Amino acid sequence: MERVLIVEDDEDIALLERDYLEVAGFGTELAATGPEGLRMACEGDFAAVVLDVMLPGLSGYEVLRELRAKGSVPVLLVTARSDDIDQIRGLGLGADDYVTKPFSPSVLVAKVKAAIATAQRHRQAASGSVADGGGEARRLTAEGLVVDTGSHEVWARGSLVELTNREYGLLAFLLAHKGTVFSRDALYERVWGLDAIGDGATVTVHINRLREKVEADPAHPAIIQTVRGAGYIVRND
């Protein structure tokens, strides 16, 4: 049984999250402080972490920063405010996705499942058991960028680039569909596997992070280009 760590200091919310995740078939463990959550996440074998932002001891942002320095376990942030700055900060630190309080428990479960599925595909491809998208492994290229869908390695101008599972999935999808413009909603649905309503910021932040990592000049991207009013595209060579 896959286990999910819930790091939440509000007992009522923690128990609600636990109940819905367990009904969905997950095992759960609870932590009520930042330091406790960080310790449990580092010591345990969890399929995902549901992480509140406002925690005693260490904030969710600090916990997330430490987790990303140590590994790539999927992290779903739970924020108390709907301000874009909170969401952008968390996504910028490497969160896979977020929900805003008050949230639908079923949406939280769906996002946890989607994040775990993405991480599993990444591990399987890296081990050589499957290729990205279930097809034959291949190399996707654009402007000095090489993505190996068999190993999930990404090279930019001859240097190996470290990407999160979600960043890799987004980049590989765009490269596999060169010449097609995708809106933020369409990318969220295709890459995250969920209804995109209200989650445009998630895609935008991941696009910006990708540009910082793979573009020679992120301020003037040559690979992932913006089509004003329409979305994003990787143009045909």
Rank of each mutant, 00 (worst) to 15 (best):
V23Q: 01
G25D: 02
G25S: 01
G25F: 03
G27A: 07
G27I: 03
T28M: 14
E29H: 05
R39M: 14
M40D: 07
E43F: 11
G44Q: 11
G44P: 11
F46V: 09
A48H: 07
A48P: 06
A48C: 13
V49E: 04
V50P: 00
V50C: 15
L51H: 05
D52C: 14
D52W: 10
M54S: 12
L55I: 10
P56D: 03
G57W: 07
L58Q: 14
L58H: 13
G60E: 12
G60F: 09
V63N: 02
L64D: 02
L64C: 13
R65F: 14
L67S: 05
L67G: 02
K70W: 09
K70G: 07
G71M: 14
G71P: 10
V73K: 01
P74Q: 03
L77W: 01
L77C: 08
L77G: 02
L77A: 01
V78H: 04
V78S: 00
V78Y: 09
T79C: 09
A80L: 15
A80F: 12
S82R: 11
D84H: 09
D84T: 15
D86Y: 12
D86G: 07
D86M: 04
G90M: 02
L91F: 15
L91H: 01
G92F: 13
L93K: 09
D97P: 01
D97N: 15
Y98A: 00
Y98N: 02
V99T: 04
T100C: 04
K101S: 05
K101G: 02
